[in-house]
Amino acid sequence: MPPAGAEPQPQSFTTPEVQVSDQPHDTEEADAYMDPNLDRERIRILPGSSETAASFQFDNEDHTLGNALRYVIMKNPDVEFCGYSIPHPSEAKLNLRIQTYDNVSVYTVLEKGLKDLEDLCDVVIDKFTVAREDFKSGGQDTEMRDAWGRV
């Protein structure tokens, strides 16, 4: 508290100076994408897991990856069960449970699932790019419109 009668002093605040970095930085995506150790720390195996039945915990992932990955892993005939959950909505964590048949390793199943999802993304990109070019060159019918008939 300032002494009685003293003028209240204005709080001093300076705008942080925006520095010009002298490091050369490339035009690639942020370094975080490149450091495998950061990604290593985002994966845990929960206690009580065996080679054919394990629960994984991923940090900073949500339904976006969880549900898509669950679908792709369920498409694998070696998988007895696959499910995911977000244990608590205020924690950015994703739990993924995989159980396999016939001594198939859950790690290879998870790895295959991720690989398959990447392949699916490639197919979507290819098909989308081709369809867009077709549409731009007027090769596709434009008869289908939305619910309100807008073009």
Partner: peptide, 10 residues
């Protein structure tokens, strides 16, 4: 997926 796979490999 790629990042997750890299983390899994590590």
């Amino acid at each position: 997926c790629q990042r997750m796979r890299r983390g899994l490999d590590a």
